[in-house]
Design a protein around this nucleic acid. Structure first.
Lengths: 212, 212
DNA sequence: GTCTATAACTCGATAGAC
DNA sequence: GTCTATCGAGTTATAGAC
């Protein structure tokens, strides 16, 4: 009974497989496929190098598992928001909200995806990305309708989609640069990211106001 | 005379040092410091591995030269635009214009900078970035003034600066993803990037219109 | 399942001939 | 300056004991 309680309070009941995966996750995201070393991963997992191969056979396979997990964490969020039946304005606000939430939970995710996708595009889209990418067709149709109805300023829908993603994701990938250029300390940058959702949402809606 | 003309028509008068540098440039930008191999660079340069060390001593030094060259190509553009005396509206338009021009000439530059800056931030800012980063203070002051005068909608200046950079740079770093998600072929994506300057400029100015 | 030991290989760097 | 040959460190991967 006491033992059960303890194991519930401290659920460090991680299997070796999990410990390896977590260590690999952290290091691959930080250093990429080429930069991360198997020895480092073993050390961080607190086990021996040979065990990495016992559980995952090769470095490539381990990397694939990690990369897939990262991608598959984000994809459903996108799909849900892009394909929902909400009206456009609400949809944009919710998209910005959950996209920024997602990135704030995994701030290195966008850099990881950008790096690996550009370094090995074929491998990335064939082996790691899911067969069914979330497509923004519905979103784009809604934009076209809103433009036709004069509810928003005339914009190219594809550019608008890219603009929204850019405003959400870019600050996280450019964080070190921003910190240097804007001269922000750790505390100020934290405040900056806290304001980000509001700023972005307002910026987008302001840009979409119909011309008077 | 004939020889001179020929050498003018085909100025492949590249020194070995230059050939190495160019090959290294291409491979480092594509694969990063860890991903690019000295053997590959030598092969692409059409010379022997030993010559890489003869001219550049170590891989790290070669990488530093390439990275510095890339950075120093962009920095003056930023400095000139950020510190000019032009009025705000003109400044924004010119910034977008020359920033996108710069990236279109070197489409892999932003990915390279983002990857390396995030993987080795200390090395990046201490050894590669110039001592005097172009700072946007003047630009930010102009934004504050325009807000105070009611010429533009009230915005946080730092967020606006980041927004402008995001809208310019992000599509290039996310290019493979965009291509997949929006389902564009090579020709369509080319057209997309051609429209980009206009779209971005209009988007920013629309977002800055004062509230009625 | 987990470990030690080591094989097999890659890669940056150097020595030395030309 | 340029090449061939090779060293030596570091890395992935495996063999085999426990």
């Amino acid at each position: 009974m006491a033992e059960q309680e303890i194991s519930q309070q401290a659920p460090v009941q991680e299997t070796t497989e999990q410990k390896i995966f977590d260590a690999a996750h952290e290091l691959f995201v930080q250093k990429g496929l080429d930069g991360a070393k198997m020895q480092e991963i073993a050390d961080k997992a607190g086990i021996n190098k040979a065990l990495l191969h016992y559980y995952y056979r090769t470095k490539e396979k381990l990397f694939e598992m990690v990369a897939k997990a990262i991608i598959h964490q984000g994809v459903p969020v996108f799909r849900k928001k892009l394909e929902s039946d909400k009206p456009l304005e609400e949809k944009i606000a919710e998209f910005v909200d959950s996209y920024i939430d997602l990135i704030r939970l995994n701030p290195f995710m966008p850099v990881f995806i950008i790096s690996e996708m550009n370094k090995h595009p074929q491998h990335f889209f064939e082996k790691i990305m899911p067969a069914e990418l979330p497509k923004p067709q519905k979103f784009i149709r809604q934009i076209e309708e809103a433009v036709a109805e004069g509810r928003i300023r005339p914009v190219n829908p594809q550019h608008l989609v890219v603009n929204i993603m850019a405003l959400c994701a870019f600050p996280f990938v450019a964080r070190p640069m921003m910190q240097m250029v804007l001269g922000l300390n750790a505390h100020e940058i934290e405040a900056f990211f806290k304001q980000r959702k509001t700023e972005v949402t307002e910026f987008i809606f302001a840009a979409l106001r119909p011309e008077s």
